[in-house]
Nucleic acid binder design. Structure first.
Lengths: 326, 326
DNA sequence: ATGAAAGCGCTAACAG
DNA sequence: CTGTTAGCGCTTTCAT
């Protein structure tokens, strides 16, 4: 397909000609420079309208060395991206913020195998900076990236080089501790956890919070099964937990999708929530709100604390803090 | 791995110098030109590796007038984009196809108010072509776009100018007719429909198919309520249907999300599916498969026909056909 | 405040 | 097959 078949787009030069000014002046108008006389400005605007001129982005980027766009990198496959409400939440937040600016969001759904392609894209000057979500410890492709462009991780990155990285995160340990304490306060005595993957900080930190809460009251911390943050993973983990044969009257699932999976298993095993067993989890997202029973978010005042009902699904609010890791 | 200098990305010229060849030759290597001697090729590759060179995309686009990327435009807001499995399906399909190519997908989630910004983006030479999904009749911003870049609509576009547009679609009328006939064949006699929005071709066509099926056997076509393809819309429509007081023993919902909503309302009204009432719908997607009762896809042989069980959720397969509208 | 000139990094004829 | 020569459309000093 040859692009030249299409009508050639008007250039800045043509606008300049029509407006009777130089290209520089047109450029200044486009870039909202204050040093343009009202007359020149009016003439240029008129010419732009008449010609239907739209500045060529590639040329702008090349000349200015700025792209006016940032990448959101999701190191997961497309199916997972759509299945996990977490990503939807983040994308919505970014899109909302960016809509007030001239920046463009470049969403990069990068399955592991595309690592090289993705890195090239990010280093080829396509974006002014990158936001990297859902980082796994075995993935080092992005930590070096920070030498080329500004990088911020969503959630504390796992790798060693990442220790110099910027990131934004919630206090997963404290939130998990708080939400587990809810179960304890409600009288639950045999509390299990469906932990997240061990190669992600959110998985490790939430497990740590759960452990701390139980340790603090001298309760056993042996009922641990890991999942992969997916409903299927949550189901499998819940099943393994039940197969142990030990009595369980409380579960902390590390995310809402796994809680959903756990709920399915519990139902099919005839366990009633919250009567037989209390279930708490993270994130009051779509998955949590559409489950049966659905989540009940506690009115926690301190935004960075996890909290909720031990009688049912429970939510930790996720106020973000930005910081540089130690 | 050599540490690259922050800020100064290596250029093609530097690669040429290191490799001891001209810039043209480097360019040829980058672009997989066959006319390069093995020696030159090796030298250039070595230089590229040593320098960690990545071609600048903006420069390439500017010089070649090709972007190697196509846009998928979703004229909906972000929340809806994530809520409707339809978009996930499409994006996955495109991503899968594109992953074997050098093309990049530029996903444009364009809420209505961003229309102008989106149009500028598409006309600024950012993409080689655009795919436009979920087109509404009141939205004319994209029909003119075809004069600048190649445009294909996903689903027949509604506007007049669109009559010259390329589009890809399923035969919604026939699929809806077939799936409705299933209800009839199963003995349902008072069949309603939860139709899609009237400003979208999928809404109109599926309603038409339902109407044709009932007309063919002389059954009344008065039980129509419209929804907006969302679960809430489906709930509201189902509620309105029930409030009419007329007996209903079959429902065709124009998409799975509305079927899901309808199912919720039916359950809370004590209506059992499929015992009291048969429900059929479109698309065997995540929403249909995770509903309760979940969908049962019929083994329809002809891929462009809608089909399924009238006893429960029913699915029309959606084999695509590409064509230019009449 | 404005214009002239010099590139940004790459591709694309065109000779050789 | 390779190098040379022009730009792609825009921003950006630097004079004026």
């Amino acid at each position: 397909m040859t692009p030249d078949q299409q009508g050639s787009a008007p250039t800045l030069e043509q606008v300049a000609k029509v407006a009777g000014v130089s290209r520089s002046t047109v450029s200044r108008v486009i870039n909202d420079s204050p040093k343009v006389t009202p007359e020149a400005l009016a003439a240029v605007r008129k010419a732009i309208d008449e010609l239907g001129y739209v500045p060529n982005r590639a040329a702008r980027i090349l000349a200015s060395r700025r792209t006016q766009s940032i990448a959101l990198v999701i190191p997961e496959n497309t199916a997972r991206f759509f299945a996990d409400p977490y990503f939807a939440t983040v994308v919505q937040g970014i899109a909302m913020y960016l809509s007030d600016t001239d920046y463009t969001l470049s969403l990069v759904i990068a399955a592991e195998r595309d690592g090289e392609k993705t890195r090239r894209y990010l280093q080829a000057g396509n974006v002014d900076g990158a936001l990297i979500l859902s980082h796994h410890s075995d993935d080092r492709s992005y930590t070096q990236l920070a030498r080329s462009i500004p990088v911020v991780f969503g959630g504390r990155p796992m790798s060693h080089e990442g220790s110099e990285a910027y990131y934004i995160d919630v206090d997963n340990v404290e939130a998990a501790r708080n939400v587990t304490r809810r179960l304890i306060d409600k009288g639950r005595r045999r509390i299990a956890t469906i932990a997240g993957p061990s190669d992600m900080s959110a998985g490790l930190d939430r497990l740590e919070g759960w452990t701390q809460a139980l340790d603090a009251v001298g309760m056993p911390t042996d009922l641990v099964e890991h999942g992969d943050f997916s409903p299927a993973g949550g189901e499998a983990a819940m099943r393994r937990l039940l197969e142990r044969g030990a009595p369980i009257d409380g579960v902390f699932a590390a995310n809402s999708l796994m809680a959903q999976g756990a709920l399915n298993v519990l139902r099919s095993h005839g366990k009633a929530v919250p009567q037989d067993l209390g279930l708490v989890t993270f994130d009051n997202d779509y998955a949590a709100q559409s489950s049966n029973p659905r989540s009940r978010l506690s009115n926690s005042r301190r935004s960075n604390r996890g909290a909720g009902w031990s009688t049912c699904c429970c939510i930790s609010s996720t106020a973000a803090r930005c910081r540089r890791s130690p």
